[in-house]
Design a protein around this nucleic acid. Structure first.
Length: 554
RNA sequence: GCGCCCGUAGCUCAGUGGAUAGAGCACCAGCCUCCGGAGCUGGGAGUCGUUGGUUCGAUCCCAACCGGGCGUACCA
């Protein structure tokens, strides 16, 4: 509907320019909004205020020119008015709204989809936790955000790929191997001092037990390098398998699991460094190689090859992001924990230095999760080994509740996640509030079947019977949904969808409590059944974007 | 010190330059012979951290300051 209003405004402006009322044809981007107050109409535009300067006319006179030239072929407008400093307010006839229901019903699962992505290839890389320990709740938030962003972009016409980057080389894996190896030696009765910089969690002991069971105590006592390597490989493989299982259980499926080691094996790290040396942005100093990231806005240059000849993590990350573009993505999005924000400038430098535009690379910085139980903080520390894993959270509160709650905040806002609240089936817990609408409508539809009302079909005639204020309010909300999805895509902000769904759910519950759907009058019943079916479809579509199920019964 | 994020109702948070700033929770008072009460209706609550600036118009953009979080490795 909003696009329709925009067309009316633009057409009126063109007409006004054609007959000389408006001197300039330099029209601003037509902004149409839905005013907060009912007495400001269903839609309003600030066209006149934005145009005043270029038209050299007072805003209210520009507004008058628009109103005078407004043509309404569909007969949707009840009236227009000029208000305040120069707003043009549009009041629609009630009859303008019901056709929206018909559109939702016919577009069905496609309702809300758009083509703003123009088929551009975009990659969303998320979670990418090092395979040195199980996923925790923070990773869960990143997974929920990344997956939902990918869903939303796909819905808006982007060609989306989901990727997990596996940090399977480097020091952390060696530390992991050493941690397991030392626990092995402990278990076969040797006195060892377990260093603080090793991984402390109980899962390390479990892995050590597996190694001993498979290879025997003599293997641990034998060649130390061989044992260490085996421990590292076994631990990394086992932990990665666990991560994959956790994510699958969380409803996240990746298109690609990309190995860091592969970049080394294929010589891509070396190749990208050589390219950067050739371009003169990587230089030698103090027996190390440095990337001139300050030239791209970083606060200091960064080492890519250390004095000892080993590459840094940054070096492989340069190669990795170069590789992403080589694979043909127009745009790449990384989802990181907020504690990595200091890393952004050097990564932007890498993207630009490898010949791409800064806007082609975006980072979603997800703020931390405060895990609570009954209002009390739950201790979370990887070092002490005391943390609540994603797997445990999902097992306790369920996948749907976890995903929904992760998406009830803007990602740049810290999130309190209370386990007790998350598993409660009360209105403290918004996921059930929304899902309940879907189930309740399903129940009404079942009831309609039983009552022999299944044959009632939506029609324009039935739509004309939808005149109650609550019905118009619901339809207006349905009408806004496609714009909500577009805005969520433009801002990479899934919580917009979450908030919309809670609002739509509230409107439905209010309607339900006030009006009966299954009434005697067949036309009215047909109209109301069509309306609630449309609500159900939008709830389902929206929940799907969030990766949350839409149950028929609860 | 420097950099990034955040300061909005008692609490948790929405609000990507528009008119009189919203929701949930909490608190108080009501609503089930009727399609699912995991629901609904009504009520109070604010110098949008402070001060300047840009603008016809600022919670939103800019600057400075105050307060909180995070980061500031030849770690990953």
């Amino acid at each position: 509907m909003i696009d329709h209003i925009r067309e009316l405004i633009l057409a009126a402006a063109r007409r006004a320019h054609a007959d000389g009322t408006l001197p300039s044809d330099a029209f601003p981007d037509v902004a149409v909004e839905t005013p907060k107050m009912d007495n400001h109409g269903d839609f309003a535009t600030n066209f006149a205020m934005l145009s005043a300067k270029v038209q050299k006319m007072a805003p209210r006179r520009v507004a008058q020119a628009l109103v005078d030239h407004m043509v309404d072929p569909d007969d949707h407008l009840d009236r227009t008015e000029i208000a305040g400093p120069g707003f043009v307010n549009f009041f629609l006839k009630p009859s303008a709204w019901p056709p929206v229901v018909g559109r939702v019903l016919s577009e069905d699962q496609r309702y809300g989809a758009s083509r703003i992505g123009q088929g551009k290839r975009v990659q969303v890389e998320f979670v990418s936790a090092n395979p040195t320990g199980p996923l925790h709740v923070g990773h869960g938030r990143g997974a929920a955000v990344g997956d939902a962003v990918a869903n939303i972009l796909a819905c808006c016409g982007y060609d989306v790929q989901r990727e997990y980057y596996i940090n399977d080389s480097g020091r952390q894996i060696r530390t992991l191997g050493r941690s397991v190896f030392l626990r092995c030696r402990e278990m076969i009765g040797e006195a060892v001092e377990f260093p603080e910089d090793c991984y402390q969690g109980d899962y390390i002991r479990d892995l050590a037990r597996e190694v001993i069971d498979a290879k025997g105590a003599d293997f641990i006592r034998g060649d130390e390098d061989a044992a260490l390597n085996h421990c590292a490989r076994h631990a990394a493989d086992a932990i990665l398998a666990g991560i994959r299982a956790d994510l699958e259980n969380f409803g996240v499926r990746y298109d690609e699991w990309f190995s860091e080691q592969r970049l080394y094996d294929e010589g891509q790290v070396e190749q990208s460094l050589e390219e950067l040396k050739a371009r003169g942005v990587v230089y030698a100093k103090d027996h190390a190689w440095w990337f001139n990231t300050t030239a791209y806005g970083d606060e200091k240059d960064r080492v890519v090859v250390r004095q000892n000849g080993l590459t840094t993590y940054f070096a492989s990350d340069i190669a990795y992001h170069r590789n992403k573009f080589v694979r043909g993505f127009d745009r790449i999005i990384d989802v990181w924990g907020a504690d990595h924000h200091g890393y952004i400038p050097r990564m932007q430098a890498a993207v630009e230095a490898t010949g791409h535009r800064r806007e082609q690379f975006q980072v979603i910085l997800v703020q931390l999760v405060n895990l609570l139980r009954g209002g009390q903080p739950v201790a979370m520390s990887t070092r002490s080994g005391e943390f609540v894993t994603l797997e445990e959270v999902v097992a306790e509160v369920g996948r749907d509740a976890a995903r929904f709650i992760f998406l009830t905040r803007a990602y740049d806002s810290p999130l309190d996640f209370d386990l007790e609240v998350a598993k409660q089936r009360t209105n403290d817990n918004p996921v059930y509030y929304v899902q309940y609408v879907h189930a309740r409508i399903a129940s009404i539809l079942r009831k309609a079947q039983e009552n022999g009302m299944a044959g009632l079909q939506w029609s324009a005639e039935a739509g004309r019977r939808l005149t109650e204020a609550e019905e118009i309010a619901l339809i207006k909300a349905l009408d806004q949904y496609p714009r909500v999805v577009d805005t969520a895509a433009e801002n990479l902000a899934p919580h917009r969808v979450t908030f919309f769904l809670m609002q739509l759910a509230a409107l439905f519950h209010a309607y339900y409590n006030k009006h009966r759907v299954l009434v005697e009058d067949p036309q009215l019943a047909a109209g109301r059944l069509g309306l609630i079916l449309a609500v159900q479809k939008v709830i389902r579509n929206g929940l799907a974007l969030l990766g949350v199920s839409a149950p028929e019964q609860m």
